[in-house]
Simulated scan of single mutants.
Amino acid sequence: MNVQDKVVVVTGAGRGLGRGIAKMFASKGAKVACVDLNQADLDETVAQCKAAGGDGKSYTANVAKEEDVVKLFNDVVADFGALHGVVNNAGITRDGLLVKAKDGEISTMSLQQWQAVIDVNLTGVFLCGREAAAHMIRLGVEEGVIVNISSLARQGSFGQSNYSAAKSGVAALAEVWAKELARYNIRTGAVAPGTINTDMLAAMKPEARDRLISAVPLKRLGEPENIGMTVLFIFENDYFTGRCIDLDGGLR
């Protein structure tokens, strides 16, 4: 797919990976529907998309809420008259050990910690993928693309039972959807980032950040634009579907 003038929804576009992905698509002339909860962040992303040479429009929605997602995709199609792709990037973390024993006291990951991450990172991807596919089929697109942002954590990450389960799940969804949606000319894929230079990493203590970087064979962090390039590859390569690309500087 040539993304010039194509309508692409990017969730979690307010900052970090989502902003990098949105800007990458805008630089190729796409019309980007930027989705997040914080309007100020979205305004900045839209401004950067337009500065990059594309078009952008902001939408506030909680991807974990079905009514928000249904309205989101209805609004995008009403505004642009088309829909060609979605990048399911929105995600949160609520880290904690499954069980921790210290000084005779046992603590556990709460159901709230588990459910919050599953709701956004997995159910949100399901809802956005479902609505995007339904609209693309209804519109009769010649080609549609759905990309889920997974994580290297899908292989199992210490202290992240919830996050690892969700990110493994979204990679699996890309494979399932590739088989189900090919008949409608919709391709799918997933990207699993490793250690990427986002606001969350910037806020870490320097020594902790240095330890993360030293573990990467390339000895540097990835940038949000690197993820954007990989997502764009999936959109542009019309024989790619149903697979997950690890982009981790060789970390795995």
Rank of each mutant, 00 (worst) to 15 (best):
M1L: 09
Q4E: 12
Q4G: 04
V10H: 03
G20N: 09
G20M: 09
K23Y: 00
A26W: 03
K28A: 10
A33H: 06
C34E: 13
C34R: 11
C34Q: 11
C34Y: 07
A40K: 12
V46F: 04
Q48K: 10
A51S: 11
D55W: 11
Y59S: 06
N74I: 00
V77M: 04
D79F: 12
F80K: 05
G81N: 09
V86G: 00
G91S: 05
I92V: 15
I92R: 02
G96E: 04
L111K: 13
Q112M: 07
I118E: 03
T123D: 02
F126A: 02
G129H: 11
M136W: 01
I137M: 06
R138K: 12
L139T: 00
L139H: 02
I146A: 02
I149N: 07
S150A: 14
S151V: 01
A153F: 04
F158M: 13
S164N: 01
S168L: 12
G169H: 05
A171K: 06
A172D: 07
V176Y: 08
W177I: 05
A178D: 03
R183G: 13
Y184R: 10
I186N: 03
I186L: 07
A192F: 04
P193I: 02
T195E: 15
I196Q: 08
T198P: 14
P206A: 03
E207I: 08
I213W: 02
P217C: 10
K219D: 06
P224D: 09
T230K: 09
I234K: 10
E236R: 01
Y239V: 15
G242T: 11
R243Y: 06
D248E: 14
G250N: 14
G250W: 15
R252A: 14
